[in-house]
Amino acid sequence: MRLIIEDTPEEVADLVAAYVVKKINDFAPTAAKPYVLGLPTGSTPLACYKKLIGLYKEQKVSFQHVVTFNMDEYCGLPRDHPESYHSFMWENLFRHIDIQRQNVNILDGNAPDLKVECDRYEEKIKSYGGIKLFLAGIGPDGHIAFNEPGSSLSSRTRIKTLAQDTIIANARFFGGDVTAVPRMALTVGVGTVLDADEVLVLITGAHKAYALEKCIEGGVNHMFTASAIQMHPKAIVVCDEDATLEMRVRTAKYFKSLPHREEMLGLARVETLMESSAKRPKK
């Protein structure tokens, strides 16, 4: 697993957006061979989406042949409700880019049979040959997608009841009314995320420091479902300085000394990397 520590949340967003664009462009997707991207919702990815929109507007990338799968969606919330993840994705990404409707996949929390909807979603992912890059955020309790603490680490897409602290945390989006937050959600499983070729987790802010420490330094643990990415052959965690507050200095220093960042972006060959990372200005 790689851990990349940037100074600010903005640099995290820059790096991740640049990486996504590079992956799409290197893949050179076509209609017959689309690039398949997994997408999260939430405040951390929001900054990254803004950067992606900026890069799209500068014509650095096209989403014409990009297929997206979203991680989760509330059950029973109308699709056009401002807090639905359909609305989130539309407002913050899809309306600004040239993505095609038929390439967008979000779980339907209002489907007549939710079990069938979840199975259909898994099948659909398979039909594209799996997800190439899964972006993810994590919750303060270490959840990835809506895989609340205690979820099976081999879980697939399914219905999940939200944990009380998630409901309380999300009440701020529903006018502070805890009873207005949907109790259930459809979510991809931890296993679904781990099946992706690459998993990239964004973590920013001091309030996520404990979760990051658990995710990196703790063991694989079903009470911190994001820690399962330790088992993934190609997992990347990008965080800011604030998120490292709970981590041991030793761990943070180790990861900062590595040229992961440049390698990721294919900026330079490894020999020159050691010099250039030594020259990076200290702030």
Partner: peptide, 24 residues
Amino acid sequence: GDLWMLGDKLVDPQSQFWERSAKA
């Protein structure tokens, strides 16, 4: 920002997006 119209009326783009099967 941006503005969307369908035929001779302005429309809410979000619902249009989800309901159109092909092009956005």
